[in-house]
Amino acid sequence: MICKDCGASQLEGTLFCSECGCFLLDAPSKPTFILPFSDFAKHDPTPALENFKPSALAKPLILTIVIPSSRRRFKMEIVDRIRIGRADIHANIYPELDLVNDNGAEMGVSREHAIIEASANGLAVSDLGSTNGTFLNNSRLSPNMRYPLKNGDELRFGELLIHVLF
């Protein structure tokens, strides 16, 4: 096996080139599945925020994220933002909340799906133009607009449901 980056010869089965560190498996990135019902519930929820100014918090806020489908419950700090999506080494995308291991691709989570931003006046969530949409308490968000995120809100990325507590 020859490394396509540096030309070093490597044993078959090697995952990363010992000379240059290049990933040697040409596994194509997983595409986001398009779900059949993504037109569902397109109406807007509570109106989008007009004057939201994202700013880093003086003291990080601790969010508890619950992902029922994968029985995960964990804490995350937010200082200025949390990006949500699926990590993809090929596209160099590494969201802070990575849903790869929650079956993200199959549940319709885009690689760059949504973002939670902080400000002195609270948190806001925006959809980043994802394939299957972001839902806040079961209402679909218009892409690239900020909506207020409250304690206990239910967020759905495609088909993947999470609860955010803080």
Partner: peptide, 9 residues
């Protein structure tokens, strides 16, 4: 993969 990537570094 994640572990091998870092181990390789």
């Amino acid at each position: 993969i994640k572990a091998v990537r870092l181990l390789n570094m």
